[in-house]
Amino acid sequence: MSIQHFRVALIPFFAAFCLPVFAHPETLVKVKDAEDQLGARVGYIELDLNSGKILESFRPEERFPMMSTFKVLLCGAVLSRVDAGQEQLGRRIHYSQNDLVEYSPVTEKHLTDGMTVRELCSAAITMSDNTAANLLLTTIGGPKELTAFLHNMGDHVTRLDRWEPELNEAIPNDERDTTMPAAMATTLRKLLTGELLTLASRQQLIDWMEADKVAGPLLRSALPAGWFIADKSGASERGSRGIIAALGPDGKPSRIVVIYTTGSQATMDERNRQIAEIGASLIKHW
Rank of each mutant, 00 (worst) to 15 (best):
M1I: 08
M1R: 00
R7H: 07
A9E: 06
L10I: 13
I11L: 11
P12L: 14
F13A: 13
A16R: 04
A16H: 15
L19T: 10
P25S: 05
T27V: 12
K30E: 11
K32N: 11
D36N: 14
L38G: 05
G39R: 15
G43D: 00
Y44F: 06
K53C: 10
K53N: 10
S57E: 09
E62D: 09
M67C: 11
S68R: 00
L73P: 10
L73Q: 02
L79S: 01
S80M: 11
S80A: 13
V82L: 03
D83V: 01
E87Q: 05
G90D: 13
G90Y: 11
R91N: 08
R91A: 05
Q97P: 15
N98K: 15
K109E: 14
H110Y: 06
H110Q: 10
L111V: 14
L111R: 06
R118W: 15
A124S: 14
I125M: 10
T126E: 15
N130D: 03
N130Y: 05
T131L: 03
A132E: 00
L136G: 00
L137K: 00
T139Y: 03
P143Q: 01
T147L: 02
T147M: 05
F149I: 08
H151G: 13
N152K: 13
N152I: 08
M153S: 10
H156R: 11
W163A: 06
P165Q: 03
P165R: 03
E169A: 12
I171S: 15
D174N: 03
E175F: 09
T178C: 03
P181A: 03
A183P: 03
A185G: 12
A185V: 02
T187P: 00
T187R: 04
R189Y: 14
K190G: 12
G194I: 03
T198F: 07
L199P: 15
R202T: 12
R202E: 07
D212A: 01
K213T: 08
V214S: 08
A215Q: 03
A215E: 03
L218V: 02
S221M: 08
S221Y: 06
A222P: 05
L223S: 02
P224L: 01
G226V: 01
G226A: 04
F228Y: 15
D231N: 02
D231E: 03
D231G: 03
R238E: 11
R241T: 06
I243D: 00
A246K: 01
D250I: 04
V257L: 05
T262Y: 06
A266Q: 10
D269Y: 06
E270D: 09
A276E: 08
S281E: 14
